[in-house]
């Protein structure tokens, strides 16, 4: 891992008696994409709010770009880009006006809104009021707004939720490009495929605690079981599927037996998904 840009130490937040985030510890390196996964109410948004200086931790601390975010939020926010889960744009202003406003808040000189709008595929409609935009366009504009200051850390909360594949692809490309340029991406998502595809590492958060955190491949290797799925023709003209674990001591023998029967129609290997692993680790689904 490159030099850490985010470092959480016993980070805790309580809403009255409810502990939303419970002594979590993790680090995220420069240019790394961290997928932060968990069901609703697991503590994802509270964590992001603490890391972006919107909430002061009840206990513990978070170093963001080597500064304690709870005491130096404004200095750190100069280098952060945040895209929220719910649309929070100025709908009665155009895309250009939205971006120019935030450019002024970041004190950016010679800011070119069109360059960013082209990047997110919104050029040509830049002077329209945002209220006329589709959900995908608004989401892309929010991403453009988060990129306005060339952030060193990009916090993205469900950036592709409910979007069409084309819009999702655009956003994925931007995330990869940002990461390649050295920007740390803290990605909160429900979409396991997206997390698997984009993240260098993923963290599973459940009931305010980090249940597991590693590279997707390592998690799959550690928790998941690769299996061989074989579709077999039975005696009555129907078919059934057999699953044979690939990493067992009897694997070779079982496979040999099935193929010897001469009734195999198809065979393919199957890997555990991140969702399977999440359920295995936490005992609950991501949507639960």
């Amino acid at each position: 891992m490159n030099k850490a840009t985010i470092s959480a130490r016993d980070l805790t937040y309580r809403y009255g008696d409810l502990t939303a985030v419970d002594h979590i510890n993790f680090e995220v390196g420069e240019g790394e994409v961290l997928g932060f996964l968990g069901p609703n109410g697991a503590g994802k948004t509270t964590t992001v709010r603490m890391l972006t200086g919107q909430l002061r931790p009840t206990e513990g601390s978070a170093l963001v770009l080597d500064e304690d975010i709870s005491t130096s939020a404004k200095q750190v926010q100069q280098y952060l880009g945040v895209s929220f889960e719910t649309t929070n744009l100025y709908e009665d202003m155009s895309a250009v006006e939205n971006l120019e406003l935030f450019a002024r808040l970041f004190n950016l000189r010679n800011f070119d809104a069109m360059e960013l709008l082209e990047k997110v595929g919104l050029s040509g409609r830049e002077k329209e009021r945002v209220s006329n935009y589709s959900k995908g366009m608004k989401q892309r504009l929010m991403l453009a707004r988060a990129l306005i200051n060339h952030p060193r850390i990009l916090f993205l909360d469900e950036p592709t939720d409910g979007l069409d594949p084309v819009s999702s692809q655009t956003i994925h490309a931007i995330i990869n490009e940002a990461s390649a340029g050295g920007t740390t991406v803290f990605l909160t998502t429900h979409d396991m495929v997206e997390a698997d595809k984009l993240s260098h590492r993923v963290a599973f958060i459940n009931k305010g605690q980090i249940a597991a955190m590693d590279r997707p491949a390592v998690l799959k290797q550690h928790y998941g079981k690769r299996t061989l799925k074989i579709e077999v023709q039975d005696g009555q003209g129907g078919t059934h599927t057999q699953s044979i674990p690939l990493d067992g001591s009897e694997t070779a023998k079982q496979v040999e037996q099935v193929f010897a029967s001469g009734s195999v129609l198809t065979a393919h290997t199957e890997e555990a998904t991140l969702e399977d692993i999440f359920i295995q680790i936490t005992g609950r689904g991501l949507l639960g």
């Binding site: 919107q54 404004k74 100069q78 952060l80 945040v82 929220f84 929070n88 744009l89 808040l105």
Partner: peptide, 14 residues
């Protein structure tokens, strides 16, 4: 209600 204040306050704006 539209949450724009949240967007403003994660910038250097105090």
């Amino acid at each position: 209600t539209r949450g724009t204040v949240k967007a403003l306050l994660v910038t250097p704006l105090r």
